[in-house]
Amino acid sequence: MPLLCVSELTMRFGGLTAVDALSFDARAGDITAVIGPNGAGKTTVFNCITGFYRATSGKIALSHDGGDFELSGMPGHIITRRAKVARTFQNIRLFSGMTVLENLLVAQHNFAMPNVARGLLSVFGLGGYRGLEAQALERAKLWLDAVQLTARADEPAGSLPYGAQRRLEIARAMCTRPVLLCLDEPAAGLNPRESDELSALLIRIRAEGTAILLIEHDMGVVMRISDHVVVLDHGRKISDGTAEYIRNDPHVIAAYLGEGDEGLDDDAAEVAA
């Protein structure tokens, strides 16, 4: 039973079909990469999975120890809170005026404040918030350490260098204690050394039991760490398999290098036949 099962997912914006009857699986404990040329619909798939878009049709099923969830049509914050899917953004979205530590604490909002009544009681020191706050702080320190930001914990997130902001966003997403982490181009804008560090971080996250869904253009990172790669082009899946398999798939090469349309159609006909 896969962790995430996307079936026949379609997303239309007016006349534009951004995602067209897409089906793929992501297994628990795997790093699943979603790749494809610009405009292939990768981020749209992410937005459907994380509740930012409501899919036109299709199903997104998630099942883990906590239960089975149908993500399409579920409000975004519930997807993170109950279905335990966390995400980062292509253009970094940190709380730039809050410190690095505060960013990590906001991510644990639902753990530190299980409901509004307890949140209000904590004004008067009731509702056991002290213990919850201490736990949240411990977890934040753990992740600060994991992304080497302990020394900068008290600086505003907006003042960090770009690479550190990327790492912080991943740490923040991990502070929501997800079972599936969706990363939208985490290596964009990183130098080779930072990309290597990122790969190590993602492998560590996988080792700790969180599955990763990864959109990435940096093929070095994708090929090195992915257990499974899904290739999209124009909203459709054109290939699906191990990194080794898709590297040699003519459809993928065609999509990336822009082979003539006729050739592609011929290939498609061959596959169909």
């Binding site: 930012f52 993170t80 966390a86 979205r93 906001v106 639902n110 997403a173 929501t176």
Partner: peptide, 8 residues
């Protein structure tokens, strides 16, 4: 938007 993504 980031708040929503963090389950708030």
């Amino acid at each position: 938007i980031a708040c929503r993504a963090l389950g708030i």
